[in-house]
Amino acid sequence: MAGDAQTNDEPEESASSPVYELKEVAVDLTGVLGTRRILSDISLTVHQREIVGIVGRSGTGKTTLMRALGGLTAPAAGELLLNGEPISGTPEGVVTIFQDYGNALLPWRTVAKNVALPLEGRMRRSEIRERVDRAIDSVQLRGRENDYLNSLSGGMQQRVQIARALAVNPAVLLMDEPFGALDALTKASLQDVLLDLHSHNDATIIFITHDLDEAIYLSDRTFVISGDVSAGDPGHLSLELDVELPRPRHQVRTRESPDYLFLRHTLGDAIDLARG
């Protein structure tokens, strides 16, 4: 599959090789109020195939961290390595799923054509069709392929964005509050879709959420990000939590286990502390 670098079918590396290494990363953003430090002293390592959750209150810099990881915003200080190399520009094989799906999708294209966007011109039509079909199946949008976005609910539109990311078979999936707009049932089923997909491939997943249960249910590790940017306290990681719950996880049973409840308690406390 030469020339198709957005896939993760390179020879398998050892399961613990670091994908991301962040050392004391800081990020500044310039707005109408001038340049402000949004994130400071972010150090973390993410390994291949890991699922890492990031939780925090709104305005603590979660989206900003995601943009730095995706190469959309350059760090102001520190070291941000992807596969051992400093990130410059948006790296191949890393796909960001944006929080504002409404701006990130193409209203003039049908569902199927939206999903096909990143594949066009890169492979044969038959292969594009196959991948698009598979991606649409996996987010349970079969039957809506030929609909335009304005006839879809917000949740369905977000699923289109997820399908578009899955279609390129990314090595790293960065998801900014991917299920925030979904109702509880759809959310649960998409969480399981994501875990099921992940059990069949080598993708590394980093996701943001403000749902503590979602963070624990999905992740191998969860970070809490706290701070108050407007009060001059840039976002920083205040807790790292190993989530050693057995996989495959189960929407009901996993959430009933004592270990889960303990993690949920710890995380809840951390977020409360973060409130200051």
């Binding site: 959309l72 948006t90 960001t96 944006f98 990130a104 193409l106």
Partner: peptide
């Protein structure tokens, strides 16, 4: 919206 160009960037 600038997001649209960023989508393009993400997909190279």
């Amino acid at each position: 919206h600038p997001r649209l160009a960023e989508v393009g960037q993400v997909f190279g």
